[in-house]
Design a protein around this nucleic acid. Structure first.
Length: 285
DNA sequence: AGCCTGCCCTGCGAGC
DNA sequence: TGCTCGCAGGGCAGGC
């Protein structure tokens, strides 16, 4: 799924169509995503105005005029596509996705004219929810979620202190959204490589100089990935169909056996918490 | 509490 | 060619 940079790319792609738009109609074709859609999902959305489109970690959040916010998560395989806008052919993005997996359709009267925003998700690990806008921080999705890594709320000393309290491997700690929001398997691996920190090391032993390097590396890799439009693996594309190109800049992720760009030693793959970790055993300590 | 495993679901590529 | 297996960007519940 999309991790923070991919979700941010999706947010930027959708915002011109969604922000300020009136929701004319919602078609919930399948209610069984990761969780069932909330009751009266379509009815609660119809007629509302979308005030903004924000991101929190890997979630998209759209505050509505009706006092609720639409909370969306793309899971592993979720994607949005948009029809409409000002393209001569009237089709801003021709979805390459299998229409059998178009689960939710939003028909909008937007600033750029009518638009149709379609949520497609083959694996259905994504979710949509409606929560009161006044209590977003307390809703089940965001309560306890760690700071946004690219905001001022992500403080190196606090990050170090959180690592100090953890015995688990640092890789697992980075995937824990309570410590820092938005990091997934790709950017955990990439940040650890940039910081020269072994993914196998206990988080508490990273606190200190390594922790500071990791803090910087996380911010750097996320910024660069957003600038590149995210990483396009398998099925990820921005809502305009453009492919991100950060995958060409991976130093270790999905590069088992290839040469480490720093020291030329072969990149290793191990399994931690049931997920692949890629790293260089020579320059990550 | 922290930590780990299994599981939700579909699709795709590798290997036979 | 057609099959089976393993694996995939996430996060939750349930076990210890």
């Amino acid at each position: 799924m999309p991790e923070l940079p991919e979700v941010e790319t999706v947010r930027r792609g959708l915002a011109p169509f969604m922000v300020g738009a009136r929701i004319r109609r919602v078609e919930a074709r399948r209610a069984d995503l990761r969780f069932p859609l909330p009751r009266d999902f379509a009815a609660r959305l119809q007629g509302a105005r979308i005030e903004a489109l924000d991101r929190r970690g890997k979630y998209l959040v759209a505050p509505l005029s009706a006092g609720e916010s639409l909370v969306m998560h793309l899971g592993m395989s979720g994607r949005f596509t948009v029809d409409g806008g000002d393209r001569p052919d009237g089709r801003y993005y021709a979805a390459g996705a299998d229409p059998r997996h178009d689960h939710v359709v939003f028909e909008l009267d937007g600033p750029a004219g009518p638009a149709r925003v379609v949520y497609n998700d083959p694996r259905r690990f994504g979710l949509m929810d409606l929560v009161p806008s006044g209590g977003l921080d307390r809703c089940r999705h965001f309560a306890g979620m760690g700071p946004e890594p690219l905001s001022d709320a992500f403080v190196a000393e606090t990050f170090n202190a959180a690592l100090k309290a953890r015995a688990a491997p640092i890789k697992a700690a980075l995937l824990d959204q309570r410590i820092v929001a938005g990091i997934g398997n790709i950017y955990a691996c990439e940040a650890l490589h940039r910081a020269g920190v072994s993914p196998r090391r206990a988080a508490r032993s990273v606190a200190g100089a390594r922790g500071m390097r990791l803090w910087s590396a996380l911010r750097a890799v996320l910024r660069e990935a957003i600038e590149a439009g995210g990483s396009s693996l398998r099925d990820f594309a921005a809502s305009d169909g453009a492919l991100g190109y950060f995958q060409h800049r991976f130093r270790v992720y999905d590069r088992e056996g290839a040469a480490c760009p720093v020291c030329r030693a072969p990149v290793r793959r191990i399994v931690q918490s049931g997920r692949s970790t890629f790293y260089c055993g020579a320059c990550q300590r």
